[in-house]
Design a protein around this nucleic acid. Structure first.
Lengths: 339, 339
DNA sequence: TTGTAAGCGTTATCAG
DNA sequence: CTGATAACGCTTACAA
């Protein structure tokens, strides 16, 4: 058992022939130490392999430097891309990410937030699920900042970053109509999260305004497999669609594969498809999927920037636009543009 | 500024009318507290929203409960799947994962390990890059346990988990030969990491034993895009290959797309392709890639199990076999089996 | 600028 | 089983 072999500031102080506070000050960015002592301390610290104990520092400062990332389905392309971006930004800001996987159960977001409190995390960024109101309050009360990404919620306090899903849905509807599509469909999962539902509702609303009907189908989790199943179901309808907006790229990829392989359909000639997220695979040759881009970099920037700001910043909800990435899964507009 | 609003064990003790040690004991698994006081403490803690301060606990126990995951290219399918598995297992074991992104620079693995030391992480699991020997020693000396996944290294101390890449390469060569392929190729990235090179060298060695030549090409990072470029180069050779072993599924997907779209080749009729990792996309309809499965669950299990074990466990290197997943990208064996 | 000393919230030890 | 008390390693007034 070699625990306890850690070298402390006292050890360094002794070796450098200074007080322990001199050591502390040397490692505190805005502190006043003479160049001479700083050099001595640094030399001693290096020789001994000293590293500030963040646990102790956090205890004193009441600021751990830890930011919790609370997320389920970590291995999903969009989620992992966001995690990657977030960890990078966080590190640049001198913070460190604690990753909490909430795949197991549904109340696990609350459990995750409790974990965040135990480690006195400076903040938590929630990418999945929705915490209970009481626990949110507890976090806020303990001075922990909260960021909710794509989770609609009206509590004040947390920073909320959302996409304009309805507007995106509207745009894709227009694109389908311009391409001359007649029978529209929306392929959703059963997850029922706010942003997913906002896409569905936005699409339906836009369709209603345009006076066209749309077949809606929902199945399983938001995955490739669900996309295949949804294709199976929608394409065997009496009047199968000639355009489908998939709630997610993953669903769209599954849908496209099934449409091609099981129904021998050509995209976009027989069927136009659009997705959402612009995951890496959407750009792959086999899919060339027209989709909306999640502004991952902007989301991460906004979140970290807010965390770095003053603790009592108002936190007005942030609403970002998803850019439409045109690729090959929607036909070019018909010459006779409807208008 | 609402920092400092944390409720401490003392607050709970007062409210419950007991000593602070009683509170501490209530939250320490194997401690002796009477049912009566435990109830009182729990009630008070719940009412006040008390949560053990892990920073302070870690300081005392010299055991933070934190395990660092050191990884680059987090958003990659294989990496993110491993991260997902690892975080889950770690949480089941009562630990929590700190995720450190080492995309930026090359020496950042060392920086990451220093961060691990600062937070007094109980262990670090390295999925990317290779740390300097001196820093490894420092970690070990501070009682921090190290796990190296797929990084060949001969230092004693860390747990090393590796796949038998050479054996896998051998098997795929045999499969190509059985399928009647004549002109073999190996598509690698320029990353040059040990496991990637082990696949290449294993393939070459096996080919040599079998008396066949293989065109080797290396390009860029280990990505889809590199796969496309590699296809471009290999397929414009004077004698283009009729079978290619791609160092990774990502590369294989890119290779396959380029082969089909730019060279109008059919897989597996004109060209057999194999990959490595068995990422989710390998099973997608468009690819149906024959590949080797990274035993992610077993890797995560082994890592966490070792971390839970006794600190001075010998740590004999673990060598896992990658299972060959047969799908549609290699032709069925010719009837006249060689041999 | 520097050192001294008083915490921070725990847990471990040791009497009772 | 319970309650004082002494650490743990650090930061931060306060005084020199």
């Amino acid at each position: 058992m070699t625990r306890k072999e850690f070298v402390s500031a006292l050890d360094v102080a002794k070796k450098a022939g200074v007080s322990r506070s001199a050591v502390s000050r040397t490692f505190t960015p805005g502190a006043s130490v003479s160049d001479d002592t700083r050099r001595k301390v640094l030399a001693a610290a290096d020789a001994l392999g000293y590293h500030v104990n963040q646990l102790a520092r956090g205890l004193m400062r009441n600021e751990s430097g830890i930011v919790c990332l609370i997320v389920s389905e970590i291995a999903t392309p969009y989620r992992s891309a966001l995690i990657s971006s977030l960890t990078q930004r966080l590190q640049d800001a001198g913070k460190v990410a604690m990753l909490i996987n909430t795949d197991r159960s549904d109340g696990s977001v609350d459990l995750a937030l409790r974990q965040a409190i135990r480690y006195r995390a400076d903040a938590s960024i929630i990418l999945s699920g929705m915490p209970d109101k009481s626990i949110t309050q507890l976090c806020l009360r303990s001075g922990q900042r909260l960021v909710l990404i794509n989770r609609d919620d009206d509590q004040p306090g947390p920073l909320r970053i959302n996409l304009d899903d309805a507007e995106a849905a509207q745009r894709i509807l227009t694109a389908f109509l311009r391409a001359g599509c007649k029978r529209l469909a929306f392929a959703n999962s059963e997850a029922g999260t706010p942003s997913l539902m906002a896409r569905e509702n936005g699409f339906l609303a836009a369709a209603q305004r345009a006076g066209v009907e749309v077949s809606v189908m929902r199945h399983g989790p938001t995955s490739y497999e669900s996309g295949r199943v949804l294709a199976q179901r929608l394409m065997t309808l009496d009047a199968p669609p000639d355009a489908v907006f998939c709630v997610t790229d993953l669903v769209a990829c599954g849908f496209m594969d099934a449409a091609r392989q099981q129904f021998s359909l050509s995209v976009p000639q027989d069927l136009c498809i659009a997705g959402f997220d612009n995951i890496e695979q959407a750009g792959w040759g086999s899919y060339s999927l027209t989709t909306f881009e999640q502004p991952i970099a902007r989301i991460a920037d906004a979140a970290v920037e807010w965390l770095e700001g003053s603790p009592n910043e108002p936190s007005k909800p942030l609403r970002l636009n998803a850019e439409l990435i045109w690729r090959g899964s929607i036909r070019a507009p018909q010459t006779q543009t409807p208008k």
